[in-house]
Amino acid sequence: MAYKVSKDPRTDIRERTYVPNLLRGLGITAKHFFRNLFGTRDTNTQVVDRTGASLMTTVAYPEEKPIYPEGYRGLHRLVPREDGKPRCVACYMCATICPAQCIYIEAGEYEDEASDSEDRVIEKYPTQFVIDELRCIVCGLCVDACPKDAIRMDTYMHTPPEYTRQNFVYDIPKLLKGAPVSHPSDPWNKREGSEEPHHVHKEAHTRIGEGLVELKLPHGEHGGHGKALPAGAQAGHQAVVTQQGPIQVTKFIK
């Protein structure tokens, strides 16, 4: 049988006669009603920061768009290189990790010494890179898995609606967008071609002491040592000269 609220000894006359508390409840709702009726709604998309008499928490979507938080996982994009081709090397890491199995890749091989653009030192590239956005669960594991920073979800876009399922299958032309990205560790920043250089420069670990001695000097002798310095300011200390010019050395912090 139902629990008798009215027999609870903790209640008093207000609860047991119902009516006063009913009226109080009506007062609360009436207060909300009038505040929202007469108050002008603050249209700040950050709802918690809203002020004013109106208590409404609505964000009227198409007219007012909330700003997505940092790290929001939006539509995928393939990151382009400086020459406009995708950074992707078709390693299948994303396809392997994808729990929804929505990524399909076919790998191809660049012709040997095809051009003098970045792909002169790249062997493998995706001839097909397809993401089924309907199957995608937007978990972002592909971005984490990518060893080449080639797939990102930083478009801050939803998948736009389409009329057919096939249109949700994104291929390279649809995925390749955004600003090009280049890292110092990219192979085209390290070498001229994929064959052995004619005059091999000695690599760092064969030059005993070179490039390492001055790094061990106490910090006081180098003002601002350790901070981000303009490239070349301390090139002798922090960079190693190769035939391609100075390359910043990234010290691995253990």
Binding site: K190, E195, E203, A204, V240
Partner: peptide, 8 residues
Amino acid sequence: EGTKALKN
């Protein structure tokens, strides 16, 4: 620290 040997 530094570069690796470059070969074919």
